[in-house]
């Protein structure tokens, strides 16, 4: 990871040096130029710090947990677009934008495979899932994922066969027999 740090760090340092050259060697009249340099350097440096923190948190290497779909992204973008269009056609559109944004937030919860999940088919065959697996769930992910084979243990024990619906004819015959038995019983009582 040292080279990644070097790239981002050198970038930020290089831009700071340029800003200092501008400031001391050329003495610009305004302050905007320095502000822009500092702003841009802070942005890239901030990204670099985020990378550093992620590295220290161990989020390096192949990513195993993958989301299954990105429908939330569609609604979030539509919400943002409708909300911003309020600038042209009235801020009441922002109220409409609220609904797709809420829907996006709601959808986002279920889109990522749970912790311990390994996407199917696994990109790297025999690799272990990321993080401590609480349970193993062979979910499908991404639009073109291959379906889990029918005999795979991921499907769990075979489902019990559904109860057979009574046949209509048999039902009718049973009903007739039952009715006849009741009638016979009543006749015997009369005798």
């Amino acid at each position: 990871m040292k080279s990644a740090h070097a790239v981002v760090g050198a970038w930020a340092t290089g831009n700071l040096v340029l800003a200092l050259i501008l400031l001391f060697a050329f003495r610009p009249a305004g302050f905007i130029e320095q502000l822009l340099y500092i702003w841009s350097t802070a942005l890239v440096a901030g990204f670099g710090v985020a990378v550093l923190l992620a590295t220290r948190a161990g989020r390096v290497g192949t990513q195993r947990r993958q989301p299954r779909r990105a429908a939330a992204g569609i609604f979030a973008a539509l919400g943002l677009a409708v909300g911003l269009t309020g600038f042209a056609y009235g801020w009441w559109l922002s109220v409409i934008a609220f609904y797709p944004l809420v829907l996006a937030a709601w959808l986002a919860r279920g889109e990522r495979l749970r912790r311990g999940t390994r996407p199917w088919p696994a990109a790297l065959g025999d690799t272990e899932p990321a993080g401590p697996p609480r349970f193993v769930h062979y979910g499908s992910s991404l639009g073109t994922a291959t379906a889990v084979p029918a005999e795979h243990a991921a499907h769990g024990p075979p489902a019990p066969p559904p109860p057979r619906p009574p046949h209509r004819l048999r039902k009718a015959a049973l009903l007739a027999a039952g009715a006849r038995a009741v009638v016979e019983m009543l006749r015997r009582r009369r005798r």
Binding site: Q66, A70, A72, G73, I74, A77, L124, L142
Partner: peptide
Amino acid sequence: PNVAAPRTTML
């Protein structure tokens, strides 16, 4: 195997 944060990418 994929981009980091693919849902953000789709957004």
